[in-house]
């Protein structure tokens, strides 16, 4: 109460939400790391982490401590400022979208009326971070990874944008809250199944997840753009990747799966959060499933998929939607 007396409530709100968001990003990365390793283990008919804690539950914390304790190696001839800046740049754009994500009807930091555009704009910055990381490492493999990543991000942002526009056209808003509210009757996945599939494939590519993990293809590029990073530099990229996956999946949930809508549970006030997270983590499960099942596509195949299939399909889908909407309104 003391603090609130001389600070405007907005600032308090901002500080609290920043802390909550950043803790959530870290928590999410921990959960995802554990889930990924455990699921990968079971997909491969082995138990996964079992040693530290019950069923390896504490493994993630131990690994995190190890990464923090590791020396940050600066290889010779790297571009020092850029090399240090890149992991931070990779981390920031994946945290910012959390501001506009409506976890439930009430749980949202800020409902921007251009929320969707904001997220798309911010997440494009990720490509920049990867490019800086690859360029400053002074390593050909890193540069390869960075170039691939940028080309991939540009190619796949187009189908994402077209699909998102299609949905925005139907809901007639760019506000994420508005988009969810528009689905109170029927989820858009039922009206726009093609759009959902395109979004999900492009989302996999946008987050550089297998089978589209070309920028860090270990059998070709050792570790791609983060070859030279160690310790926390590496783990920031790692955190960023998981946060990015969460953002992509939550947008998919907001756009297609009805956001926080679900069967209302009487005993909880924020049942929306439960349903929202359930849907997001279900999608994340599918992402992990894909990664441990499929081989990696080749770079030209990846590009072909975007330019020859996803973009035309999403464009046609967009036009048809527009026409149908006009006819229905008439």
């Amino acid at each position: 109460m003391e603090i609130t007396s001389f600070l405007p409530p907005d600032i308090i709100r901002m500080i609290v939400s920043a802390v909550v968001i950043i803790s959530f990003v870290f928590l999410n990365a921990m959960v995802m790391t554990y889930a990924e390793r455990k699921l990968a283990g079971h997909f491969q008919r082995r138990p996964g982490p079992m040693e530290v804690g019950s069923h390896g539950l504490l493994q993630v914390i131990v690994d995190g401590l190890k990464l923090i304790g590791k020396q940050l190696i600066l290889p010779k001839d790297v571009d020092r400022p850029l090399f240090r800046l890149a992991p931070l740049l990779a981390f920031i754009p994946v945290v910012l979208p959390f501001i506009v994500i409506p976890f439930s009807e009430k749980l949202q930091v800020a409902d921007l009326n251009i929320g969707l555009i904001f997220i798309l704009a911010i997440s494009s910055l990720n490509g920049m971070a990867v490019l800086i990381a690859g360029w400053s490492s002074n390593n050909k493999y890193s540069l390869f990874g960075a170039l691939r990543s940028v080309a991939q991000n540009i190619a796949y942002e187009i189908p994402i944008l077209l699909v998102v526009l299609t949905v925005a056209l139907m809901a007639n808003t760019f506000s994420l809250k508005g988009l969810v509210e528009a689905q109170s009757g029927m989820w858009f996945i039922l009206l726009q199944p093609v759009a959902f599939i395109i979004y999900f494939i492009a989302g996999l590519a946008e987050t550089n997840r297998a089978p589209f993990d070309l920028s860090e293809a270990e059998s070709e590029l050792t570790a791609g753009f983060h070859t030279e990073y160690s310790g926390m530099g590496f783990s920031l990229f790692f955190l960023g990747e998981y946060a990015n996956m969460f953002v992509v999946c939550s947008i998919a949930t907001i756009l297609f799966l009805g956001g926080w809508h679900g069967i209302p549970l009487p005993f909880l006030e924020y049942t929306g959060v439960f349903w929202f997270l359930l849907k997001v983590y279900a999608l994340l499960f599918v992402m992990i499933w894909c990664r441990w099942t499929y081989p990696r596509v080749r770079f030209d195949q990846l590009m072909n998929l975007a330019w020859k299939y996803l973009i035309p399909f999403s464009l046609v889908n967009f036009i048809i939607t527009a026409i149908v909407l006009v006819i229905v309104k008439l």
């Binding site: 008919r45 993990d213 059998s219 081989p295």
Partner: peptide
């Protein structure tokens, strides 16, 4: 298959 980026077959 690991070279092709599929992680699971090697375990099998």
């Amino acid at each position: 298959l690991l070279d092709l980026g599929a992680f699971t077959p090697i375990m099998y």
